[in-house]
Design a protein around this nucleic acid. Structure first.
Length: 797
RNA sequence: GCCGAGGUGGCGGAACUGGCAGACGCGUAUGCCUUAGGAGCAUAUGCCCUUGUGGUGUGAGGGUUCAAAUCCCUCCCUCGGCACCA
């Protein structure tokens, strides 16, 4: 009988659906396991084989865990707010709700087509008012707790998407979504105080099992640095600077202010016009220009004004230069050209004095010495090392009220409002009398109104601002005239907490039931792409920690173990993209080879977390394996297997189990292939018990295939009900082993010997071996090394 | 520049704690089968040569060791991330 995957796959997909085979049980007392995929954006193109790689892996884990007796939560949903649906609506006039629904239908079909075992009764959709009601609810909590505030500030603005962006969404000075160069724009924005959680976000990283790479990226993004804030006197006014190198203070020969520094306006500068001109020029530079000019530093001296170095009361020059960032530290720095590369470049260019105050071993001429070392030219602090110097100089200035210890972060607060339509409305009413009034909980959800014109205005207002009967409302507090907030939340809002709603997705009264949260959290395994390292993965940790502080969730971290999916590249080695026309669709592969082949191939390609190019020839190899295996099973008529086969099956069992624990999926597939080759090579049949064991082991990888064979060998219940097998290692204890015989470290022979043979015995066997003798004859044996059951190395002179 | 991951046949990749490098798959070659083959089956397949009881081989060079893809040092390259953060 031929392996007719089309028929089989349809049959079992229907069976699973009819029998609710993948529904999570809430009444079970078995230990829980929560395995989660990063939920997709329902794009019009559906999912490609790259997305599936992660889903298939989690599906395998979910299936194995179920068979091992865990109560598994394995849900799926839709991260459906965002620009593509809105842009599509602008082009076609079709409402995002409609396209979203259609796209969800298509992707859901694809997911079912490959046999993913999601519990669809827990499906969520971030654009569903019943869902975003709770997104808004969390926003209100943030607002109540002072973590959401509105502020006028220069933000990143994408002229193409016509919306403001968060720092995390600007990559290389370009909009993360569309690649357009971003500009700065002063708009009143909603901002979330993620900076309040900087330390908690850092500390939490120690407790979770995440790839080192992602942890590092988050650490760097948060960018904590300890140092001192020092006050410099500038004509009777004070300027604070932040430094991590207070030990170099005696080498500070000038001060630099960022172009935006407020003090500049207050000073009596001789060359005022020149300075203002420079500031104007700096302001007009785009993000990209600033980045590209890193090497060539520019600035203007503020003439007639001087600062005083608090360490030695020397007068020093002051400059304005755009290499100092206004948004970090105090927007002003003490420049120590001898010990800072940037200051060195600048000082060289403008002929400023360079005073060395630190000496060390790796010092090079014509460059700044930036390492720690021993202080000199630093009066009473001479001969201290840098670390001591920092402490002593810091304390010395602190006593005079001129310095204070300070911690700075690179992390900025999260710009949270977008001037677009297709997002969650921010549940705030602006009232002339009462100011910003939050919606009351009973008003939620504040529904997104249906509109005809989706076009962004570009003025910094959302298209919602034009819907007057939606905008104009009564103030919830005083009943007077109020206006709704018309900005919407960013794409990331809904995904910040979706993993919590799966726990209780139909709850109409609360965000979720507390008991359910306690039962299921944290997520035990979270799988998705690394591109979200400082976006979703940081934002959701922030919200989670906030909810933890409110006592709403019981764990400090949402995702205990995280693993990244390596990209699947196109056959040409490039990233798959619609514009390049190199996208491989799962529909195509399933149609030609079947879902089980596709699943197996995606796992077999290579290490899970590595980027690998697609190769349709390789798919055929996996298909051949399934076909041969199919034939083999159906040909077997014997009740019992030989001892050898039994041993091989248990070995396979052990290897598969060992590697699955390590999240290795490519090697188990190879083991199944090796096993098949072994059996075929032996020209022996498999007994029933061994067939069953192998089918159960293979079933998470190729579920339809195994269900069908399970039935064909005489079962009338699903293979899903079978318990996951553990290997019995006593069954594959070898009596004989091949011992590698080396002479001077080179393999010269392999001899079959009894297991656990002693060194002496092995030595005798080896020495008497004809082939070995040819290499040892007439030579003096110096030493013999013996690794039990593996190797013997005879060292001769 | 800094941080992270990596470099093994023609290709994707295996290799536990240092102990037979190249599992498994693709591709290729030869043969069989076939009206036919982009199907199936069998065999071979790291490289080199004088085809042997041979040499050599895991980015390059050095080191430790009886033994190194694996450990140490120096360097090169690729990918990903960050990037004037004082």
């Amino acid at each position: 009988m031929e392996y007719n995957f089309k028929e089989i796959e349809k049959k079992w997909q229907n069976y699973w659906e009819e029998n609710n085979s993948y529904k999570t049980r809430e009444d079970s007392n078995n230990p829980k396991f929560y395995v989660l995929d990063m939920f997709p954006y329902p794009s019009g193109e559906g999912i490609h084989v790259g997305h599936l790689k992660g889903y298939v892996a989690t599906d395998i884990i979910a299936r194995v865990k179920r068979a091992q007796g865990f109560n598994v939560l394995y849900p799926m949903g839709w991260d459906a707010f965002g620009l593509p649906a809105e842009n599509y609506a602008i082009k076609t006039g079709i409402h995002p709700e409609i396209t979203t629904e259609k796209n969800i239908g298509n992707i859901k079909r694809q997911m079912k087509m490959v046999g993913l075992s999601y519990d669809w009764s827990r499906e969520i959709n971030t654009t569903d008012p019943e869902y975003y009601k709770w997104t808004q609810w969390i926003f209100l909590k943030l607002f109540e707790n002072g973590l959401a505030y509105k502020k006028l500030l220069p933000i990143n603005w994408c002229p193409s998407c016509k919306t403001g962006l968060a720092n995390e969404e600007v990559v290389d000075g370009k909009c993360e979504r569309c690649g357009t160069e971003t500009t700065k724009k002063d708009i009143e924005q909603w901002v979330l105080k993620i900076t309040d959680y900087a330390d908690k976000l850092l500390e939490g990283l120690d407790d979770i099992d995440w790839p080192e790479k992602i942890k590092e990226m988050q650490k760097n993004w948060i960018g904590r640095s300890e140092g001192w804030e020092i006050k410099f006197l500038v004509n009777s006014k004070e300027v604070s600077v932040f430094t991590t190198r207070i030990d170099t203070l005696f080498g500070c020969t000038y001060l630099v202010l960022a172009p935006e520094h407020p003090l500049i306006k207050e000073l009596d500068i001789e060359n005022r016009n020149e300075v203002l001109e420079y500031i104007e020029k700096a302001k007009n530079k785009s993000e990209r220009e600033r980045i590209s000019e890193v090497k060539d530093k520019t600035g203007v001296e503020l003439k007639r004004v001087k600062a005083v170095n608090p360490a030695n009361n020397k007068e020093i020059k002051i400059f304005v230069a755009d290499y100092v960032l206004s948004h970090y530290g105090t927007g002003a720095v003490m420049a120590v050209p001898a010990h800072d590369e940037r200051d060195f470049d600048f000082a060289k260019k403008y002929g400023i004095e360079i005073i060395e105050v630190i000496k060390g071993e790796n010092k090079k001429e014509g460059a700044a010495f930036i390492e720690d070392g021993i202080l000199f030219n630093s009066s009473e602090f001479d001969n201290l090392n840098s670390e001591e110097g920092r402490e002593k100089i810091g304390e010395y200035l602190k006593k005079q009220g001129k310095a204070e210890k300070k911690i700075n972060y690179k992390l900025r607060d999260w710009v949270f409002s977008r001037q677009r339509y297709w997002g969650e409305p921010i549940p705030i009413v602006h009232c002339e009398k009462c100011g910003m009034v939050p919606a009351s909980e009973s008003e939620l959800p504040i529904k997104l109104p249906h509109i005809e014109k989706y076009q962004p205005t570009g003025t910094g207002e959302s298209p919602l601002a034009a819907i007057s009967d939606w905008v104009n409302v009564k103030c919830p507090k005083c009943g007077g005239p109020g206006k709704r907030e018309t900005n919407t939340m960013p794409q990331w809002a809904g995904s910040c907490w979706y993993y919590l709603r799966y726990l209780d997705n139909n709850n109409k009264k609360e965000i979720f039931d507390k008991e359910k949260e306690k039962k299921w959290m944290p997520v035990d395994l979270y799988v998705g792409g690394a591109e979200h390292a400082v976006l979703h993965l940081l934002y959701s940790r922030f919200w989670h920690k906030f909810l933890y502080d409110l006592g709403i969730v019981s764990t400090k971290e949402p995702f205990y173990k995280l693993r990244n999916i390596g990209l699947i590249l196109a056959p040409d080695g490039q990233k798959m993209s619609k514009s390049k026309g190199n996208v491989i669709s799962p529909d195509q592969i399933v149609n030609e080879f079947g879902a089980d082949t596709l699943r197996l191939y995606e796992m077999f390609m290579g290490p899970f977390d590595q980027a690998i190019g697609w190769n349709t020839q390789g798919v055929k190899g996996v298909y051949r394996f399934l076909s041969k295996f199919w034939d083999l099973i159906l040909e077997c008529k014997n009740e019992k297997s030989s001892k050898e086969i039994i041993a091989e099956v248990h070995k396979l069992n052990k290897k598969v189990n060992d590697d699955l624990i390590k999240m290795k999926f490519n090697t188990p597939v190879a083991f199944f292939m090796e096993f098949l080759n072994f059996v075929v090579g032996k020209k022996e049949e498999l007994g029933k018990e061994e067939i069953e064991r192998v089918l159960i082991l293979l079933s998470p990888f190729a579920p339809h295939f195994c269900e069908e064979l399970w039935e064909k060998i005489g079962h009338n219940t699903s293979i899903l009900l079978e318990k996951w097998p553990e290997a019995d290692s006593s069954l594959f204890k070898e009596e004989k082993v091949f011992l590698v015989v080396q002479v001077n470290g080179k393999v010269r022979e392999k001899v079959e010997v009894d297991v656990n043979i002693s060194k002496e015995e092995a030595e005798n066997v080896a020495k008497e071996n004809e082939r070995v003798k040819r290499w040892t004859e007439g030579k003096e044996i110096e030493e013999v090394f013996f690794v039990p059951n593996k190797l013997i190395n005879i060292v001769v002179k």
